[in-house]
Write a protein that binds this DNA or RNA. Structure first.
Lengths: 147, 147
DNA sequence: GTTGACGTTGACGTAAACGTTAATCATGAC
DNA sequence: GTCATGATTAACGTTTACGTCAACGTCAAC
């Protein structure tokens, strides 16, 4: 549970050279984000991640870790992996062509609409929850008051 | 698409009597909320809805319609039907026993934590989207500016 | 009386998102 | 060497949330 940020013998600096970059093993990321390695590999199969390899072994750079964070955030909001894939590629690949840019803007607008709907849904739901909570607390006091 | 609020010959008032209550057919609700009748029946199978019957036919009262709304709101927030079931029963069944009340309050607190996490996620995501949008618009102006 | 619109209950199919073995390989520690 | 640890691919299994027929009932309209 103590968030392994660099891992064992192989995680951190790769030798002391100047172009040092933090790296992570698949198990480290799995522990840090409390998911399984299976899930991480699955995201890769779906094109959401593309870590380097040393031989067969996957080596995750900070960029990969950031992408994984984005993926999990998308999941918490209930998006499908396909939708998340769109969003993720959105961030790091602003298109260069005019037509693509316009489509890009349209997609962004759609996402924003969804997110704003969710924001509204959350607002309403929180209000209802608080009402229910207040009612329950009242009831509790009643029960305790009546000895 | 013109939100059928009372339906054909059978939807509205049930005769003119005083205890009138708006009712809905399954198809009406399906149209109104843009889902399939299959989905609605599925929610019933899962214990999320329990409409009256006239013979075999399902008759939905305003309360059922409200529950359906709640279900769909839960879906938009990415909750599973099971989680939604919990929330829905939460609202209309404040428990009477002390122990249950305390568990109830715990559940509410959990939900609230989830919702607040989502709220935060949405905030961050919206900010990122807006950054991406601004970048795209800038790029568009560049392309158009260069004749 | 049959057509059409709408309703019903099965029951099998499917896409998404992993879980769960299984078999195998690489490596540092002893 | 071998043993434990952690990595790999491959492949089948599982759960959720419906979609998609199929076969049938019912009622108003023609």
């Amino acid at each position: 549970m103590t968030a392994a940020r660099t891992g064992g013998r192989d995680g951190g600096r790769d030798g002391g050279r100047d172009g040092e970059e933090e790296t992570y093993s698949i198990a480290e990321l799995a522990r840090e984000f409390d998911i399984t390695t299976r899930a991480i590999r699955f995201y890769e199969d779906e094109g959401l991640l593309a870590p380097r390899r040393r031989g067969q072994t996957r080596i995750y750079a900070p960029r990969d870790r950031t992408r994984l964070k984005l993926i999990l955030r998308g999941k918490r909001l209930g998006f499908s992996l396909q939708e998340i894939a769109e969003m993720v590629t959105m961030y790091d690949a602003t298109p260069g062509e005019t037509g693509q840019l316009e489509l890009f803007l349209k997609r962004i607008a759609e996402r924003r609409a969804t997110l704003e709907q969710q924001r509204e849904d959350i607002k309403v739901t929180l209000a209802e929850l608080e009402a229910a909570e207040a009612a329950a607390k009242r009831r509790l006091r009643e029960l305790r008051g009546a000895r």
